[in-house]
Amino acid sequence: MPADFPLAILAKAPVPGLAKTRLIPALGAKGAAMLHERLLRHTLKVALAATDAKSITLWTALDHCHPVFQELADHHGIILRPQPEGDLGGRIHRALHAMSQPGLLIGTDCPVITPSLLAHCYLALGRADVVMLPAEDGGYGLIGVRHCDPRLFDAITWGTDAVMEETRKRITILGWQLSCPQTVWDIDRPEDLQRLSVAYPALAREADHQSA
Rank of each mutant, 00 (worst) to 15 (best):
L18Q: 14
L58T: 00
L27K: 09
C148H: 07
L58G: 00
P14S: 11
A49W: 04
G138H: 10
T160I: 04
D192F: 03
D87Q: 15
V68C: 08
T108C: 10
I171C: 02
T108I: 09
W158E: 11
L193H: 12
T57I: 08
L96E: 04
I171Y: 02
A162N: 07
V184M: 05
K45W: 09
P102M: 09
T160R: 07
P134L: 09
T172Y: 10
L96V: 09
L96K: 11
A155R: 15
H75D: 14
K30G: 05
R127F: 08
Q83T: 12
A207R: 13
E166G: 03
K30R: 14
L58C: 02
L152W: 11
A199E: 04
Q70N: 09
R81C: 12
A61K: 12
T21R: 06
R81M: 14
S211E: 14
L142P: 00
S179G: 07
D186I: 02
T157P: 07
R170F: 04
H76G: 00
T172Q: 13
L117I: 12
E85R: 11
G28K: 10
P25K: 09
C148N: 13
V198L: 07
P190M: 05
A162C: 11
A32E: 06
A124Q: 15
G17K: 14
V46H: 01
Q83Y: 08
V68T: 11
D87P: 06
G89M: 06
G144A: 10
D188Y: 07
V15L: 14
D188V: 05
A47H: 00
V131C: 06
F5N: 01
P134Y: 12
Y200W: 13
A47K: 00
W176Q: 11
T114S: 15
I173M: 07
D87Y: 10
C65D: 12
A135I: 05
A155L: 14
M132Y: 01
P82A: 09
D129K: 05
R189Q: 10
M132G: 00
Y122T: 02
G144L: 08
G175A: 08
L80P: 00
L125E: 08
E136P: 01
D208H: 13
T183C: 05
P150W: 07
L152V: 15
W185K: 04
D4N: 15
I78A: 02
Y200I: 03
I187P: 00
T167M: 13
S100A: 09
R81K: 15
A155K: 14
T108Q: 04
P16D: 04
T167K: 04
R38G: 01
H97M: 11
G86H: 12
T60D: 02
T167D: 04
K54C: 03
E206F: 08
L88V: 04
Q194D: 12
L27Q: 10
A29C: 05
M99W: 03
R151K: 11
M99H: 08
Y122G: 01
M132W: 02
P181M: 13
V68P: 00
Y140S: 02
I24T: 08
F153L: 08
I92G: 01
R38E: 01
L39Q: 04
G17E: 06
V15K: 10
T57S: 09
P67M: 06
L193D: 11
L174A: 15
L196Y: 02
L58A: 01
I79R: 15
H64N: 08
Q177L: 03
W185E: 06
M164K: 05
G89E: 04
A135V: 06
P201R: 11
R195H: 13
G89N: 07
R151D: 13
A29L: 03
